[in-house]
Write a protein that binds this DNA or RNA. Structure first.
Lengths: 297, 297
DNA sequence: CCTGTCGGTAAGAAACCCTGATCGATTCAT
DNA sequence: ATGAATCGATCAGGGTTTCTTACCGACAGG
């Protein structure tokens, strides 16, 4: 029912009008004159009405004059779309939705995102933060394309690229009896008031696991946790990156027996592919946080 | 530089998404499945980025999801244009600019335009009126597509289709000495106070030409002319159609010696072709005002 | 394990679009 | 006038695009 208008013949019509003839148009279109003639005639009989007068010169019919601005409009919209998609593909435009665990979001991302938007000034980034499970769920559900987190359980539908290892240590106030140590073994912590937090599960399955059953509190909120530590109510364990260095009275002492680490990495969907902007972000993150390592599956 | 997006592959993408698969889409597009697959792949490599995930099912990539509404938008605009142009061609939409001499405009056009818009309810008409020279100039200059007028001088660049002959007669007040006659010869008018008007040139070149030199007035405005006639100041000659029948005191007496007629017809540009709407009007006018005559060159 | 459905691939056929040569008409200069 | 130049139209042909037919491998459900 509806005739399919192809873009190119419409361009020919515009060219004929503003070049003032079929020959001149053909020249500027890098086509031969018959190509232009035939394309126009094809278009005319598809519309069922001539666009140019038959006699001699290239003059628009009234119908042609009616069509002209509309052709121009459709071509403009086509070109706008084409340009826009190309910009997306070439990472000169676009948007990345991502998520990270709080320690990464607050300690690594500010610098990283600053560098990123310096490298890709046209791209936009949205960052959410939440615990590892939250990040995993956002990535798995497609609500964000990338997550930076530690991986608890294996998931075939998600792809995890390790970026860095983050050692767990003990955090206490500077006047605590352990505060002067360079390193600790788990036995030294026995009998201490241990405050559990969201990262304490890292100790599960290690020699230090017995400590967890002794812990009196379980505080997931970081502000509350630091408040309790500063108040000298107890001690806790945290990965190095999660240790809030802005509190002068808190000390971080590495745990060496057992050595416990979390592995931070980039999480993405295993089946869904990435938008061009997210591809740029993925490569940028890997390059930034894993210096001297090539990307690989 | 810019890739040319053809409309059809975009349609394929939409169909794949809302049919939920390549096979189903191919069915509803009346194509085979490989045709759809290949068209999509062609589009993908033209964009430089896949639209659908590779593995198994037909799932959009994030880039594909980004493209989808934009494809839909471009297709919508294409179809809107296509539909609109088709409506123009099929005379289901459009606009006719035309002009007519005052007698035609006031006596024939109201009825004719009423019938026309009843026949073509979607079309719109603009009508200007003015003397024959004015009408001719509008048509020649392309400001209107059609004129209904009498033709003074031949003009190769204009096409004139005769519609009706309009006999000239004498107009006088009902108490005038000639008012009772059924017909008149020019000699009977000698010695009368003759008022010239815009149509008096019709008498030039006829036996009645001597009357013109006797005329005391030359009044082009119709209101003024009728006022003078009603006041009994003189008589005039007018074509039948230009005789203002709404004035009860005025009489029209046919001039039979010589028989003078003007030929009213449809005027259009000889080189410029007509818009579809104007074509409809042209045919309608010819059919309405020249009953029982087929259209000719 | 077989079977139906999915999408991808290969080869040939049809349609499409372009080129090169040529034509008739018009215009312009001689 | 008449010949040259330029205009757009036309036609045969070949190269590309885009379809169809036939077949493949992957996967899911009975």
């Amino acid at each position: 029912m509806l005739p399919e208008l192809k873009i190119q013949p419409l361009r020919y019509v515009l060219a004929i009008v503003d070049a003032g003839g079929f020959h001149a148009a053909a020249r500027q279109l890098h086509r031969t004159q018959p190509a232009v003639s035939m394309a126009v005639r094809e278009l005319e009989q598809r519309l069922g009405e001539p666009l140019f007068e038959k006699g001699g010169k290239a003059t628009l019919t009234p119908f042609g004059a009616y069509c002209l601005p509309r052709f121009r409009e459709l071509i403009t919209q086509h070109d706008r779309l084409s340009r826009e998609l190309l910009a997306q593909v070439h990472q000169q435009a676009g948007h990345v939705d991502m998520a990270a665990v709080p320690s990464v979001a607050s300690r690594l991302m500010p610098r990283l995102l600053g560098d990123f938007i310096h490298r890709y000034p046209e791209l936009r980034v949205s960052l959410q933060d939440g615990n590892a499970e939250f990040v995993r769920r956002l990535v798995a559900g497609g609500e964000v394309e990338l997550g930076i987190t530690s991986l608890w359980q294996q998931d075939d539908s998600l792809a995890f690229t390790p970026l860095m290892r983050d050692a767990v240590g003990v955090v206490c106030r500077d006047d605590h009896s352990l505060a002067g140590r360079d390193s600790l073994s788990w036995e030294a912590l026995q009998g201490q008031v241990l405050i559990r937090n969201g990262t304490s599960r890292l100790l599960e399955g290690t020699d230090a696991e017995p400590l967890l059953v002794e812990s009196a509190f379980d505080i997931s909120n970081m502000i509350s946790l630091t408040a309790m530590l500063v108040a000298g109510i107890g001690i806790t364990t945290l990965p190095r990156l999660a240790f809030p260095e802005e509190y002068e009275r808190l000390r971080f002492i590495p745990l060496v027996d057992p050595q416990v680490e979390r592995e931070l990495g980039l999480l993405r969907s295993g089946q869904r592919s990435l938008s061009p902007a997210a591809q740029a972000m993925e490569a940028f993150v890997i390059e930034s946080l894993r210096p001297g390592a090539a990307a690989g599956p």
